[in-house]
Structure formats: structure tokens, C-alpha cells
Design a binder for these strands. Structure first.
Ligand SMILES: [Mn+2]
Ligand SMILES: [Mn+2]
Ligand SMILES: [Mn+2]
Ligand SMILES: [Mn+2]
Lengths: 218, 218
DNA sequence: TGATTTTTTTAGATAAGTCTAAATTTATTA
DNA sequence: TAATAAATTTAGACTTATCTAAAAAAATCA
């Protein structure tokens, strides 16, 4: 079995490698885990010994197939717990992530499969991220940030790129949550702010920065 | 915050002091936690420093009010998770304890209060043990082992004194589970074996050892 | 009571995970 | 390409929790 710490490293490497694509740097892992580069190097050696990552000094790291399987399983647990917390315990979408950071380390596979069944096999977590199935298969829908939509186009909010509670609370206040249809009414020349019309006729203005972090299907 | 290890020590001391009453010995803690006496001594010093236990060298330990509050909170979490696992995820009563040993360390009080509400404030866990409320109040029903019942008396199974999976599986096979009414049909002179009649007319024979570990109300 | 056994504590090691400071390697840029 | 800057690794130290072996205290009993 892997320790909580090892699991957190593997998960971070996984997330960094899906966004960054290439091999992951020591410093980026340190930043993600809020730790120091020296600590990361120590852990990378250990994970390499366990054949969970490919690591050559100064070269960055990537996950092995086994390491990726471990990481995806933690992501699966994280997202299923998030769904449970929101759906059954009625937490808000900005509250579930922190709690899931603990729950994702509960080890039992039987438990998570039963939770999956109890929740009726949800496909997406409260932030729109896909939940891997028990075989580690994970959907990859093509989502676009609102910032690339042209004036007068429409989209449905399906995810976010940023999970900070403050950001999620802000979106909730604007009623910009998963499943909501938006219509790009205007884009301000000066700073690229986006004016959205919602189905309920409300109109909200968001900065380009915010628009980049909201994902939609067209 | 206390570490998992500290929480496990406090919980063990709590359980040992409710069954044994007086102050708890180093060796009994070591036995309960499957560790060595030397390790226990080290931890006792730390817990005493944190004012969670009363400890004087060679004198055994007892919980302070604060230590007891921490312990009871862990027991609350343990039993609520056990109830969830059985009620919602349909685990068997011999499977839930091990899983709850992990879940009891999830820290959020908000989470456990919401879980409590979701489960509709259960009073007892799957083994008949009372679930402390959020203020740490815990019911203490007077339960008697079947072994003290005279011939021809009746009782309702309300708990067990032994939580080992093998024991619980054995009881389940005999249909001796929580809520079942039993009638003491006979007690064998030779070895004090107890012959029970159930409501469904079935008759089962259990050893005195087993009879001691099944608790009933009359 | 005095000797023996049991219990508990101390001493000293080990392993995991973290840190700071220094050294080394790689990347940048003049 | 040589100097400088940035990234990474190493060295050495610290904390937590654990262990074995030895010492000390308490309990038992002849
Ligand atoms: Mn999350
Ligand atoms: Mn999420
Ligand atoms: Mn239990
Ligand atoms: Mn129980």
C-alpha cells in the first residue's frame, strides 16, 4: 500500500501531466503540494524505486502505467466522495473539495464500488469533472472556455478550470453553475469582459479571466 | 489537531476504562493497539503533555475531560459510519468495523453532523452500541448477557460484547442478530450450553462462551 | 521479609517525511 | 561561448512513531 503522502504526490503528478502534457517538473510539484523542492526530490526517488514514476535526475517525471492507475483511482474516489457530499449531504460545490481531500485516501475498493452503486453511477462530479469508472476509464469531453466564444453564440456550462472556493462561490452568486445555458451578448473591446445573458433573462458581466475558467459545450 | 495515532490511543483508553472502570495499564493499551509497551509509554507522555490524559509513572492512566470528549467524538464518528455502511451501502455487520476504523479519523465535524441528519439520527450502531450525540452524550442501557438468563426466560438481543468478524458471522448464520427475541429453553448441566428457541420456532444451541457475549434486554 | 516475577520506563536505533543551506546541473543571455 | 540565473539535487538536521534490549519499580509469593 501507498501512504497518504505518496498518493498525494501521484495525484498531483497526474493532474500536472494532463494539463501540461509533457514531463512534470520538481518545482511544479512542490508548488502544487505546498512543499519544498528538496522534499519533492526525496519523494521522487522513492516513487521511482516503487516503479510508480519514470524519473531521471534533472529530467522531470512521468507516471508509469501502474502509477497512473493508482492516481486515477484516487481521482475516482475524490470525485465520487464530492458527488456524495453534494448530492446526499447537501454541501455546496465550493465546500466539497477540501473534505474529499481526506476521504479520497480511504482505502477500500469495495467501499468505493458500493458508494458508486449507491449514487447510481454518476458520470460527473459537482465541478463537471468526469468520474473515472472502476477500470480507470475516464471520459474526455471537449470543453471550451467561455473566453473563446464569439459574440451571439450560446453554450452550456459543463465545468470549471479553477476550484478555489472563492471562485466557486462567486460563480454560484452569479448563478453560473453546471448545466446553465449562457448566451454571449457582448464582449467589451477595452478589456475583453464578457456580457452573458442567462435563460432567466438575467444578464451578468464577467472578466476575461473568469471567462477563461468557465468551460462550456456548444 | 491530534494525529490518527493519538486518536487511536485515546479511543483505546476510553474503551478500556469503560470496561475495566479503574485506571488503564500500559500493557492493556499495548495489547489493544497491537503495539509494544515501550511505544505506549512514549505516547502517554505526549498525551499527558497535551492534557488529554492523567498520567503518573507506573500508576496507569485515565482520560481528562478533554481527552474523553475527543475519544467520544471518535466513537461517534466510528458508529455513525458503521451505520451508514450497513444501512446505505448494505455491508454486513461483520464487515463495517474495519472500514469504520479508517473513516472515524475524517476530521470535519460539519460532515459528521450532516451524516447524522442524513441517517435520521440513529441511536445505535449495527452491533447495538449506542451512538453518542454531537454533545458527547451517550446512552447507557442496562444490557445482560444471555448467560445470566434463567431457564424459560425471554430476552431481545440488543448488542454483542465481541466484535470479531468470525463471531459476528457465526451469529448471523444462527440468525442471532440485533432485535431478535430469544427464549431460553434449556441450559445444559454439564457445560452450561444454552438452548435458545427463536420466534420462528427454530432452536439453536450456543456455548456458555457465546452466551456471555450476546447482550439482551428482558 | 526477602527473593522472584511482572510491569513499566529508559536508552538508543530506525524509518518516513519534512526542512534549510549548500552544491550541482541545466537554461538563459550577453 | 562564457557568465549568470534558475532549477534541481545533496547534505545534514528535525519530528513522529515505532522497535529491542536493558534498567528500574511494583507486585507476588515463599
Ligand atoms: Mn476536488
Ligand atoms: Mn471536483
Ligand atoms: Mn466498530
Ligand atoms: Mn460497532
Amino acid at each position: 500500500m501507498n501512504s497518504f503522502t505518496e498518493e498525494n504526490y501521484l495525484k498531483s503528478i497526474y493532474h500536472l501531466s494532463v494539463t501540461d502534457d509533457e514531463s512534470v517538473s520538481t518545482n511544479s510539484i512542490a508548488a502544487a503540494l505546498n512543499t519544498k523542492a528538496a522534499s519533492v526530490t526525496d519523494m521522487l526517488k522513492k516513487l521511482a524505486d516503487k516503479k510508480l514514476i519514470n524519473y531521471a535526475k534533472y529530467q522531470g517525471v512521468s507516471l508509469t502505467d501502474e502509477g497512473r492507475a493508482v492516481a486515477i483511482n484516487i481521482v475516482r474516489k475524490h470525485r465520487l466522495w464530492e458527488f456524495f457530499l453534494m448530492e446526499k449531504l447537501h454541501f455546496k460545490w465550493d465546500e466539497v473539495h477540501e473534505l474529499a481531500e481526506e476521504l479520497e485516501h480511504i482505502s477500500s475498493a469495495e467501499l468505493i464500488d458500493r458508494l458508486d452503486r449507491f449514487l447510481e453511477y454518476p458520470k460527473y462530479d459537482p465541478h463537471g469533472d468526469p468520474i473515472p469508472d472502476r477500470n480507470g476509464c475516464i471520459k474526455t469531453d471537449e470543453l471550451k472556455p467561455i473566453s473563446v466564444l464569439p459574440i451571439n453564440s450560446r453554450g452550456t456550462i459543463m465545468g470549471v478550470r479553477e476550484h478555489a472556493p472563492a471562485f466557486l462561490q462567486y460563480l454560484a452568486k452569479l448563478q453560473l453553475t453546471i448545466g446553465i445555458q449562457v448566451h454571449v451578448a457582448d464582449i467589451i473591446d477595452y478589456d475583453q469582459s464578457v456580457i452573458l445573458k442567462l435563460n432567466n433573462k438575467n444578464s451578468v458581466t464577467i472578466s476575461r479571466e473568469v471567462a477563461k475558467n468557465i468551460l462550456v459545450t456548444i
